[in-house]
């Protein structure tokens, strides 16, 4: 009985740990191994060294995907952070109806990216969407067809993604702002500092941990972005909105280049881990010191 009590906690933990061990870590190792093989339609185990990686970085589609990820990531993280902070500061001014406004800013995060993509796909469609609306209003020269334009389509992904995520970032900043000790602010006001100055010099610098959390959350969402691109543009027009996640899927499952697909998944994982691991490490360390 006593021995059982001693082992019970570990037994309870075991199924979850086993699932994680196999479905995450063993799978990562397997995908890593495949990225060094000549796998095409099915896994195959002929060792080819770094050939898939050299092939990958020579592919035009992969380079498009990386450029798109850079554009999307920078704009998505940048706009969400700025807009989120801006709205949080405004909502933090003793707003009547805050309880009404906040859920409206937040609800998009409950939606599937497929739903968001569907809504924005037709909303941005020049035939029936916003361009058509302005034409009906009499502004017939109004032109907005980014979603059909190879050079601008990636920006429509940014528009839809910012709509979906900025409210959540706002909530993170609002929680941060509510944690600021307002004695400091009162003292600064008594010293005659202007509101803009108080925010610039005191409050916003205190939001550094929130900026960091928001960055980590948004960056890993950006690297993983798949559903939204599929629903909004399908990776098109042409392959103009290819991102690493859509690249990995199409090379692995429809173009029968599993080795190249696996190597692209490994690159994605390295990108995510290079952001996440330092963050988790510093969080856990500061957690222990507390």
């Amino acid at each position: 009985m006593n021995r059982l009590q001693q082992w019970l906690p570990r037994l309870v933990l075991a199924p979850s740990f086993f699932v994680i061990l196999v479905f995450v870590y063993a799978f990562i190792l397997y995908t890593g191994y495949l990225s060094f093989t000549d796998s095409r339609m099915l896994p195959s185990y002929g060792w080819v060294g770094f050939e898939n990686y050299t092939k990958l970085f020579a592919l035009r589609h992969w380079n498009t995907a990386l450029v798109n990820l850079a554009i999307f990531g920078v704009l998505y993280i940048g706009i969400c952070s700025v807009l989120g902070l801006f709205l949080a500061i405004l909502l933090d001014q003793k707003i009547r109806g805050e309880g009404f406004i906040r859920p409206i800013y937040l609800y998009p995060m409950a939606l599937s990216f497929i739903v968001t993509g569907t809504a924005w796909k037709w909303f941005l469609d020049p035939g029936i969407g916003i361009e058509n609306t302005f034409h009906n209003l009499g502004w017939t020269s109004f032109h907005f067809d980014w979603i059909k334009d190879r050079n601008y389509a990636i920006y429509t992904v940014v528009i839809a993604a910012v709509w979906q995520s900025s409210g959540f970032v706002m909530a993170m900043f609002l929680a941060g702002l509510r944690g600021v000790d307002n004695e400091i602010i009162k003292a600064a006001q008594i010293d005659g500092a202007s509101p803009a100055r108080i925010y610039r010099k005191i409050i916003i610098p205190m939001m550094r941990p929130v900026f960091l959390s928001a960055f980590v959350v948004l960056a890993h969402l950006a690297i993983k972005a798949y559903d939204l691109v599929i629903a909004l543009t399908g990776g098109g027009p042409g392959r103009a909105t290819e991102v690493p996640a859509t690249f990995m899927y199409s090379y692995t499952f429809t173009r029968n280049q599993m080795g190249v697909g696996a190597s692209s998944a490994i690159i994605m994982m390295i990108m995510v881990f290079s952001i996440i691991i330092p963050y988790l490490y510093s969080e856990l360390k500061s957690g222990d010191n507390r």
Binding site: T31, T252, I266
Partner: peptide, 21 residues
């Protein structure tokens, strides 16, 4: 730590072996 890190992996990394398993 291993469970925590598993939260953030891009799922593309498990797609091929998951299909097989």
């Amino acid at each position: 730590g291993m469970m925590l890190l598993s939260c953030f992996i891009p799922f593309q990394i498990v797609l091929i072996p998951a299909a097989k398993v």
